[in-house]
Nucleic acid binder design. Structure first.
Lengths: 193, 193
DNA sequence: ACTGCCCGTTGATCTGGATCAAGTAATACA
DNA sequence: TGTATTACTTGATCCAGATCAACGGGCAGT
């Protein structure tokens, strides 16, 4: 169960066997059936969740009731309402499962304790957050600078797995588009623009 | 010169006097006159820059030649093309000074070396990047979910200093709006909506 | 296998914000 | 202190993408 997590961590920092078993003690496993919720808007997010199997989505619902996808997380990715988690404030994201999923959860308190006992884990998360920030920054520029079609093409090139695995109407929402718009864009591309 | 940096770091982790003086050795100071460039699109970003005085902007220029603001950094904030810095790839951001500025630069190699010698600095940057990620995530949702007016009001509430200090046309770009649009929005708000 | 219901498609119409075009106020610079 | 450049405003028009509506096809549950 920890295999996926360890191999992910070992890409960034080394771990001894003792550290590995110590590390395990800070996590709790959780299973989620398709459509089950991990977190709801308005709650405080107390854990970071690592996906060892399955697929989660995090999204915001606006006053009109429209959903806006924030991110998708499958094997090897983390998911949480990072704002709520970081500042211990009420969050604006829902997280639920698009497929039956297996998760490993670590609470704010356990993260604190774990990084004190295994300082290397600060480095792991430093690199993780640094990379996520870099990616998010690019996405934000893309969102403000390009046309709907350009955004879709960029996504398809930079993240083909997401296109394969996530339903099209959710991809549309992720890109800030109406589902009809994405449908038409794909048609145009298929017709050779 | 290091006062602003140390007080910023001390908000997140403690430092001994020896650590402070060791830390200094990894940074290089740099002054930038208004309109001078720190980084240009197409270059690789080799340093993180801490602003101890002044104001920087980072922005992307699209194929049509239009500028898209990414962020503004004044006293106590870091600036860089974090994607380029993290992955050692060609970047898409320009960084220049909106006011005469004083910076402290640390290179990728020195960051690596510094975190090995002072592991606490991994924790500092972990928290820094975690918070930045949280903020950026909210901004991205806001960008996809709200109207121009709502975005402006949210920014004015969450970051009034930016409104005061940064020219209005650059605020417009930061929000992904045409300058004319922001001008009209402000007029409407002044007229009591 | 049947039926209900999401999900994606296609068409028609609408609209928020962009773009184009002037004019005016502020700031810098010589 | 004048003049040139840049920032902001206001008006007129345009358009990418949203919204509304209707239909067909796949797959989920019984």
């Amino acid at each position: 169960m920890f295999d996926v997590l360890f191999s992910h961590i070992l890409e960034k920092v080394s771990l001894t066997e003792e550290e590995k078993s110590l590390l395990k003690s800070f996590f709790v496993a959780k299973s989620l059936r398709k459509k089950e919720f991990l977190l709801r808007e308005g709650e405080i997010c107390h854990s970071l969740s690592f996906v060892s199997k399955g697929l989660l989505r995090s999204y915001h619902i606006d006053e009109k009731g429209d959903e806006h996808m924030n991110l998708f997380a499958w094997e090897g990715w983390w998911s949480s309402d990072i704002y709520s988690f970081s500042f211990n404030e009420i969050g604006q994201f829902n997280i639920d499962a698009l497929e039956d999923s297996e998760l490993l959860l670590i609470t704010r308190e356990n993260l604190e304790e774990m990084t004190l006992q295994i300082p290397k884990m600060d480095r792991y998360f430093r690199i993780l957050f640094q990379n996520s920030l870099a990616t998010k920054e690019r996405r934000l520029v893309s969102s403000n600078s390009y046309t709907a079609k350009e955004k879709y093409i960029q996504l398809a090139e930079s993240n083909p797995q997401m296109i394969q695995r996530v339903p099209q109407n959710l991809i549309a929402s992720y890109l800030g588009l109406a589902p009809e718009t994405l449908s038409r864009i794909k048609k145009n591309i298929a017709l050779g623009k």
